[in-house]
Nucleic acid binder design. Structure first.
Lengths: 224, 224
DNA sequence: GGCGTCAAGATTGTGTACAATATTTGCACT
DNA sequence: AGTGCAAATATTGTACACAATCTTGACGCC
């Protein structure tokens, strides 16, 4: 209905849905189906799906279709190892460049995140939590690194959907608050350490043992 | 001619051409032209171009076409800052996991790189030089980081095309040799330091002052 | 009844025609 | 001659038709 959205719009909407866990790993995204939802032809849908594939959210299998990626345990570890390489130093750089406007924006982010948690909207809280990390990269004025972190945050959403231990609470709000304090004081060293610890915390809350659930296909699950 | 190549094949060929400086920043890649060269329809070409866009090699302007990206000075710095975050630690990890087969492969790489330099094939030498860095990420068994480094190496080729000081020699072969030695001895610490220094060396050989040459369009070059 | 083969259906892959838009060229007018 | 507008050209954006491939269900055979 109304104006036909562009491929970028569709890609954004789908990405946001993944961030909010409204779209879960393994789900199939049929071209016709997505096209009907957004009132566009398959050509535009295919562009959007390819975009999401390149950012690692979809796995497109030839003549089979596009499926939301199901990161293996190894990939899950790799995502957080990559984040551990990029984000702490980026947080340090952000602490040195952060402006009062940035601080205010991050404060609003945290408030909204808390509000979402109180409203039991875990998906929205998760999305906002990811945006917090992306904002830090933006503040550091490192567009290239920011693009990488965007990808990693997106893929982290998939990892969390698959491997998160406790569904009830996401008790990481304290970490973001502490980071914000360090940024406010332009304490780069502290920001770097906090980010490093925060990421380690996140990984420690995942269950990254080799589950059966991660079998990519039924064939492998039942093979012996 | 003969068998029609897939979109991935075309993307690889174009990427390789960029690595070898056969395709230079600013060049326009017309869909029809590329399609005729590879004997495929525009549909497949567009897929390949989108892929290259997502890896940062092309900038696609709506209703204008696809142009090989011309990184600004800022982007050039960002690329090497990102590499400085990712590659040293990755080299350390590689030193801990490297196998004799990997060592042999890297040795061949270096030999070929020297041969290319002797044969005055600067483009081929540059491509092999980039592959050396990618191989190290592969050896580290970090597929996610490897994908990022691939992007960064590609974009580095564009940066070098635009900002390299001396066209004659690429006197970095020593650095790769030293890195290989560290890997052979499983000396992670040394490998990390060498990689860090190597990347700093590379940046120092660039002319990243704000030249006029970086004007994206004639319009800007002559605007006053 | 179990199993293999094959046909029907559905979904994606690709080429192409047409529409939309940008660029260039020519022309009229000042 | 210079400038502004308009038509012509060329290139990309989108939709659609057809081909290729996979999945599913049915039928016949053992």
């Amino acid at each position: 209905m109304s104006a036909p959205p562009s491929a970028e719009t569709i890609a954004s909407e789908l990405t946001e849905a993944v961030h909010e866990h409204r779209i879960l790993p393994g789900m199939k995204l049929s071209e016709d189906e997505v096209g009907e939802i957004f009132n566009v032809g398959r050509t535009v849908v295919r562009q959007a799906l390819r975009t999401l594939q390149h950012s690692g959210l979809l796995s497109i299998e030839r003549n089979r279709g596009a499926f939301v990626a199901k990161p293996t345990v190894k990939e899950a570890r790799e995502v957080f190892e990559a984040r551990a390489l990029l984000e702490p130093r980026t947080a340090r750089a952000a602490a040195e460049r952060v402006t009062p406007e940035d601080i205010a924006l991050l404060e609003r982010h945290i408030v909204e995140e808390h509000a979402a948690l109180d409203a039991e909207e875990a998906g929205r809280a998760l999305k906002l939590s990811g945006l917090f990390h992306i904002e830090i990269a933006r503040i550091a004025d490192q567009a290239t690194v920011e693009a990488f972190i965007r990808q990693l945050v997106s893929r982290s959403s998939l990892v969390i959907a698959l491997y998160w231990r406790r569904r009830n609470a996401m008790c990481e709000s304290h970490a973001h608050h502490a980071l914000l304090d360090a940024l406010r004081r332009h304490d780069g060293e502290m920001a770097e350490d906090l980010m490093k610890g925060h990421l380690l915390d996140l990984v420690s809350q995942l269950d990254l043992r080799e589950h059966p659930a991660q079998a990519p296909s039924l064939r492998e699950a039942l093979a012996r």
